Amino acid sequence: KELVLALYDYQEKSPREVTMKKGDILTLLNSTNKDWWKVEVNGRQGFVPAAYVKKL
């Protein structure tokens, strides 16, 4: 599985998104969309802005 690092805090704005804190390590589930990547964090799956994370 591929991991990404949260570069910034992000507060979810819809049920399809997830909240993350700067420094969190997230599991990358899908990065086919250039703007929104699907990740898993704390057992929850959802989208975060691709610009807010970096592949490890």
Rank of each mutant, 00 (worst) to 15 (best):
K1M: 12
K1C: 12
K1A: 14
K1F: 15
K1W: 15
E2K: 09
E2M: 11
E2C: 13
E2W: 13
E2Y: 11
E2H: 13
E2F: 12
E2G: 12
E2V: 13
E2S: 10
L3M: 12
L3V: 11
L3E: 09
V4D: 00
V4R: 02
V4C: 11
V4K: 01
V4W: 09
V4Y: 11
V4L: 13
V4Q: 01
V4S: 03
L5V: 15
L5M: 15
L5Y: 12
L5I: 15
A6G: 03
A6I: 02
A6S: 06
A6D: 00
L7R: 06
L7M: 11
L7A: 05
L7E: 05
L7S: 03
L7V: 07
L7K: 06
Y8E: 11
D9A: 07
D9F: 04
D9M: 03
D9S: 09
D9V: 02
D9T: 06
D9W: 03
D9Q: 03
D9N: 09
Y10R: 02
Y10M: 01
Y10C: 02
Y10S: 01
Y10D: 00
Y10T: 01
Y10G: 00
Y10N: 01
Y10V: 01
Q11F: 15
Q11G: 08
Q11Y: 15
Q11L: 13
Q11R: 11
E12V: 06
E12M: 13
E12S: 14
E12T: 09
E12R: 12
E12L: 08
E12F: 06
E12G: 15
K13D: 06
K13E: 08
K13S: 12
K13I: 09
K13P: 05
K13V: 10
K13Q: 15
S14A: 08
S14R: 10
S14H: 13
S14K: 07
S14F: 07
S14Y: 07
S14L: 09
P15C: 09
P15D: 14
P15K: 12
P15M: 10
P15V: 09
P15R: 10
R16S: 13
R16M: 15
R16I: 14
R16T: 13
R16N: 15
R16W: 15
R16F: 15
R16Y: 14
E17F: 07
E17T: 08
E17I: 04
V18R: 02
V18T: 06
V18G: 02
V18N: 04
V18C: 09
V18L: 15
T19Y: 04
T19N: 07
T19L: 03
T19Q: 05
T19K: 05
T19F: 04
M20C: 07
M20I: 15
M20V: 12
M20L: 10
M20A: 02
M20W: 02
M20Y: 02
M20K: 00
M20P: 00
K21D: 04
K21A: 10
K21V: 09
K21Y: 12
K21W: 10
K21F: 11
K21T: 10
K22A: 15
K22N: 05
K22L: 06
K22R: 11
K22P: 04
G23N: 08
G23F: 05
G23E: 02
G23T: 02
G23W: 06
D24C: 06
D24M: 14
D24T: 08
D24H: 05
D24A: 08
I25V: 12
I25T: 07
I25F: 07
I25P: 02
I25Y: 06
I25W: 06
I25A: 03
L26C: 12
L26F: 06
L26V: 07
L26T: 01
L26Y: 10
L26H: 03
T27Q: 12
T27W: 13
T27A: 11
T27V: 14
T27Y: 12
L28D: 00
L28A: 02
L28Y: 02
L28V: 07
L28S: 02
L28T: 01
L28R: 01
L29G: 01
L29R: 03
L29Y: 04
L29W: 07
L29S: 03
N30Q: 12
N30D: 15
N30R: 07
N30I: 08
N30H: 08
N30F: 07
S31Y: 08
S31V: 07
S31D: 15
S31E: 14
S31L: 05
S31T: 11
S31I: 07
S31H: 11
T32G: 11
T32K: 11
T32W: 09
T32L: 11
T32V: 11
T32M: 12
T32P: 04
N33E: 13
N33V: 05
N33R: 09
K34R: 11
K34N: 13
K34C: 11
K34G: 11
K34V: 11
K34S: 13
D35R: 12
D35H: 13
D35C: 10
D35M: 13
D35I: 14
D35P: 03
W36D: 02
W36L: 03
W36N: 02
W36S: 03
W36G: 01
W37K: 01
W37H: 03
W37P: 01
W37G: 00
W37M: 05
W37L: 05
W37R: 02
K38A: 09
K38Y: 15
K38R: 12
K38V: 14
K38N: 07
V39E: 00
V39H: 00
V39R: 00
V39D: 00
V39K: 00
V39M: 02
V39Y: 00
V39T: 01
E40S: 09
E40W: 06
E40P: 00
E40K: 06
E40I: 08
V41I: 15
V41F: 15
V41L: 15
V41M: 13
N42P: 10
N42S: 10
N42M: 10
N42Y: 11
N42D: 14
N42A: 14
N42I: 06
N42G: 14
N42E: 12
G43I: 03
G43A: 07
G43W: 04
G43L: 05
G43S: 07
G43F: 06
G43K: 06
G43H: 07
R44F: 06
R44I: 09
R44D: 04
R44K: 12
R44E: 07
R44C: 06
Q45Y: 08
Q45C: 10
Q45A: 12
Q45I: 15
Q45S: 12
Q45F: 08
Q45N: 08
Q45E: 14
Q45W: 08
G46K: 03
G46R: 02
G46L: 05
G46I: 04
G46N: 01
G46Y: 04
G46T: 02
G46A: 04
G46D: 01
F47I: 07
F47M: 10
F47D: 04
F47V: 08
F47L: 09
F47A: 03
F47Y: 14
F47G: 01
F47P: 00
V48G: 00
V48K: 00
V48L: 02
V48Q: 00
V48A: 04
V48S: 00
V48W: 00
P49S: 02
P49A: 02
P49F: 02
P49V: 01
P49K: 03
P49T: 01
P49L: 04
P49M: 03
P49G: 01
P49Q: 02
A50H: 04
A50W: 01
A50T: 05
A50F: 02
A50P: 06
A50M: 05
A51M: 11
A51Q: 14
A51L: 11
Y52G: 09
Y52R: 08
Y52H: 09
Y52K: 09
Y52I: 09
Y52E: 03
Y52A: 14
Y52W: 07
V53C: 14
V53P: 00
V53R: 00
V53T: 04
V53H: 00
V53D: 00
K54F: 09
K54R: 13
K54P: 02
K54I: 15
K54G: 10
K54T: 14
K55C: 09
K55F: 11
K55E: 09
K55N: 08
K55R: 14
L56Q: 06
L56K: 04
L56E: 05
L56Y: 09
L56F: 10
L56V: 14
